[in-house]
Amino acid sequence: MANGWRRGRLRAALALLAAAIALAVLAPWLATHDPRRAVPEEQFQPPSATHYFGTDLLGRDVFSRTLYGGGRTLGVALLTVLIALGPGLAIGIAAGYGGRWLDAGLMMLMDALLAFPSLILALALIALLGSGTVQVALAVGIAGIPSYARVTRAAVIQARSLPFVEAARALGAGPRAILWRHIVPTAAPSLLAFAGVTLSWALLNGAALMFLGYGGDIAAPEWGVMLADGRAAFRNAPWVALAPGSALSVTVLAINLLAGGLAEHPADG
């Protein structure tokens, strides 16, 4: 019974995330208005049949902006995870499977980076890289590498000492074969779950940097930018901030539920 509930939760999360991605991808067909076009006479219209989520200070349609914004926000988050994933995996495997000195050196470096809160590190990187969409993904991604390396290393070390890996080694399998045929598949589920958690964190941190105004083009729809726009107008038109805020929360919730479910029951995924 508990299993059924868990599976239902997993399905719901999967459906929510799929819906968020689908809406973002289909934005050009689903949007009712041009997301950038300002129509000042229609400032702060409450939600209605013409404007499903109302309009903002410049009279832009919040529904269309939320749809288009999803593409940009999710795209940045995916790019961020990819940027963190590659180097993070490589460093983690090298440290967990390489020699003792390599391990000590790499982990010392990663620990030094982990000492900074990741958002602060991302802000420092933004100061170096300048503002823009790709820069935000790079900054958040680089700031996420150390955690990824740490988790990968732990998973690799754990897998390395499992009896069947020991057995494979005793049977004379080469280090490369052990790594790819035994350790990586064993460590993969927990790494996958961690990638899920990282995606929601990438989504939030990316949106945070966008909210702070580091996303480049300020007129482009993006959830963090829309939250910043909506905050000043919150007392006049709460829908301007509520729409992107809810979209962001629901997406993060879906990702977290999915990641949690995967970690507990990898086979169900």
């Binding site: 950038r36 076009r37 300002a38 200070l57 410049l58 105004g213 083009d217 300020i218 007129a219």
Partner: peptide
């Protein structure tokens, strides 16, 4: 920034493109 976005939208209606750069 809001003024600039509105100008951008107004000018695009007559065929002028504006790149907006906000500085801190």
């Amino acid at each position: 920034p809001e003024v600039a976005q509105l100008i951008q939208s107004e000018w695009r209606d007559i065929g002028i493109e504006v790149e907006l750069i906000r500085v801190p």
